[in-house]
Design a protein around this nucleic acid. Structure first.
Length: 600
RNA sequence: GGGGGCGUGGCGAAGCUGGUUAUCGCGCCGGCCUGUCAAGCCGGAGAUCGCGGGUUCAAUCCCCGUCGCUCCCGCCA
């Protein structure tokens, strides 16, 4: 190419008037008036209007109407002011035009499969197949540039705080706990498999034993689980670990990071220390361990009111060990139609909710399909507990605690959206603490709430030797950070005493042999002077997504997977040659139906 | 594994109680046009209605299956 740019497409201003400049970029829209022709030339920095004027240059003007969208061009010309009243205030370079005197076509382009500059409503399928074109849009470029800036800032923050960035292996070994692993067959060791890391957890703890106090990494992680709008099979963690710390130290550091991040990336001052809520309170008041604190509609437990009720639905819930909880949509009665309320029951169905009851507080008295089943005392107590006044609507659910929580959490969100309570650039951070160390699985056996290396709180340590009930009472020294109802990170103080670690494995039903096989190195390492340590992992993709206000994680990932975990651009995953399989000593067996599978 | 939504020229949509020449906007191609900025005006081309099967004299429309995209539940220490 002969015409190398002197400026990018986003930087010319009225100060440049009179200069001769060269621009390189892509052709956006062409506005051919027969005489003068205007073309939007753009690159990742912006857009400049270039003018092909026959009175200025006969030669280049002839070329103008051969140009098409997405052609790649170089132009040299004079920067001139727009005529009186013709400036475009919507673009940064709107004060000037570049009159083209020399022109070089760097490449032509087929007509793109969709309008790159207005791809908003194009099906995801098409955009993902031509991801390289979708990424040419200013919108996608700004997102990825934002992400790059944020990542850079985060990296600097840790370097400034004496952290050491260390890369850990992608080829690791499978672990029995947690998500499904992505496996990689070994050629050199036929029949054996590496696993891609679900997180660098074990490595970073090893690094603490090594004495790399203050480690961090921007780490790719892999989990072979089903996808969601905010979940991809590979994602990025900001992973860190510190020695000789308690949870407060980790929390304080993270708060500093977020103060800096929010200031530099969004110019928003957030308050620290951030609010903090116990797991138990979060579940009770918000129905979720990742509460959205941008709006109210807090949940109240009203089980006590209906201990001896005659109302069948509530009675059953109480009898079966469940609960009755409610939220007050304070003052929103007028904005709620009967339909809005009736739609709640089908709305909670996917969450196994069987029904949603409501009471509308009218001036002339409460109105509800269920109120006739309440005794006078029950109704009175309920209104008192819910602080119910005329103009309110009470939403009630009775079921198991888990179902009630999940449904009411979803209902909170639904009404917050409906009543437009979620403001743009409102960022509500909170820590969630005092998680139980174990949860009961379907068979009632303890399973780790976070991961098996999480330390119990010191004061609960003695309960490790207790009954199953005692075990479920143990609180962990763990903390999750939640932003706008999404868990964006979590961490804990780890176990640094190998005896405690072995005890935990036993409780989880991992015997000595298995523990030795899977985590032997960690148990060993803990016996060679492991310092007390703890850390956090942040979901970088989610943080970026929330800061940008996008509603899908793939909007902040350059080459994301579809919901079926495929890449429409590269067509991954693909088949491999017989030869490759032979080298790995692998054989594919796909079953046509269940019967064959069972026979195997 | 389960439930919901979507699939119609290159893109976005309409049509679907079964019968039309499958409609509209954008884009594309051609023409006109000297101040537009997602320019305007005129003309034109472009569709096996995701795929397979069934019902019917007749299917874009109804039924069954299947594929893809998407949202949710399960799952995600």
């Amino acid at each position: 190419m002969k015409l190398k740019r002197t400026h990018n497409c986003g930087e010319l201003r009225s100060e440049n008037i009179g200069e001769t400049v060269t621009l390189n970029g892509w052709v956006g829209s062409c506005r051919d008036h027969g005489g003068v022709t205007f073309i939007d030339l753009y690159d990742r920095w912006g857009l400049t209007q270039i003018v092909f004027d026959p009175e200025y240059s006969q030669e280049t003007h002839k070329i103008a109407h051969t140009l098409r969208g997405q052609y790649v061009v170089a132009v040299k010309g004079d920067v001139k002011p727009r005529p009186e009243g013709m400036a475009n205030p919507n673009i940064e370079t709107g004060e000037v035009d570049v009159y083209v005197s020399e022109f070089e076509l760097l490449n032509s382009s087929k007509t793109p499969p969709f309008d790159i500059l207005h791809a908003g409503s194009v099906h995801a399928e098409t955009k993902l197949k031509y991801r390289y074109l979708d990424l040419r849009s200013p919108e996608m470029q700004q997102r990825l540039i934002f992400r790059a800036r944020a990542t850079h800032m985060i990296r600097n923050f840790f370097m400034d705080n004496e952290f050491v960035e260390i890369e850990t292996p992608i080829l690791g070994r499978a672990t029995p706990e947690g998500a499904r692993d992505y496996l990689v067959p070994s050629r050199v060791n036929q029949g054996k498999f590496y696993a891609l890391p679900q997180s660098p957890q074990l490595y970073k703890q090893s690094l603490m034993v090594s004495g790399f106090d203050r480690y961090f990494q921007i780490a790719r992680c892999f989990r072979d689980e089903d996808l969601r709008a905010e979940r991809q099979p590979e994602f990025t963690q900001v992973d860190l670990e510190m020695s000789f710390v308690s949870s407060d130290d980790v929390i304080t550091l993270l708060e500093k990071l977020f103060v800096k991040l929010m200031k530099e990336m969004k110019d928003i001052d957030i308050k620290i220390p951030m609010t903090s809520i116990t797991y138990q309170d979060a579940m009770l008041k918000y129905g979720s361990d990742a509460p959205d604190l941008r709006f109210g509609f807090e949940i109240t437990d009203i089980t006590d009111v209906f201990q001896n009720t005659g109302f069948g639905v509530f009675k059953n819930a109480v009898k079966n060990g469940g609960c009755i909880r409610a939220i007050n949509l304070k003052g929103y009665s007028k904005q709620l139609s009967r339909k809005d309320l009736d739609e709640l029951t089908p709305f909670v169905k996917p969450m196994r909710g069987k029904g949603v009851a409501w009471i509308r507080m009218n001036e002339e008295g409460p109105q509800s399909p269920i109120i006739k089943f309440f005794s006078e005392a029950e109704a009175e107590n309920l209104y008192k507990m819910m602080d119910a006044e005329a103009g309110d609507v009470i939403i009630l659910l009775a079921d198991t605690e888990k179902i009630v929580s999940q449904c009411l959490a979803a209902i909170r969100g639904r009404f917050a959206k409906k009543f437009d309570l979620i403001k743009e650039n409102d960022f509500a951070f909170t820590w969630v603490v005092d998680f139980p160390l174990f949860e009961a699985d379907d068979d009632g056996n303890p399973t780790p709430t976070h991961h098996p290396f999480t330390s119990p709180k010191p004061e609960d340590m003695h309960l490790l030797d207790g009954s199953k009930e005692d075990l479920l009472k143990i609180k962990s020294d763990a903390y999750d950070i939640v932003l706008n109802g999404s868990e964006i990170g979590g961490g804990s103080i780890r176990i640094h005493d190998h005896k405690v670690q072995e005890k935990i494995f036993r409780i989880l039903g991992i015997d000595e042999e298995e523990a030795k096989e899977k985590f032997g190195f960690l148990l060993d390492a803990l016996q060679y002077g492991a310092p007390p340590h703890g850390g956090v992992a942040l979901g970088l993709d989610r943080v970026i997504m929330i800061l940008l206000g996008t509603d899908a994680i793939r909007d902040v990932i350059a080459f994301p997977k579809t919901q079926k975990a495929t890449c429409l651009m590269t067509d991954a995953p693909g088949t491999v040659d017989e030869e490759q399989l032979d080298e790995l000593a692998l054989e594919i067996s796909l079953f046509d139906d269940e019967e064959d599978k069972d026979d195997d």
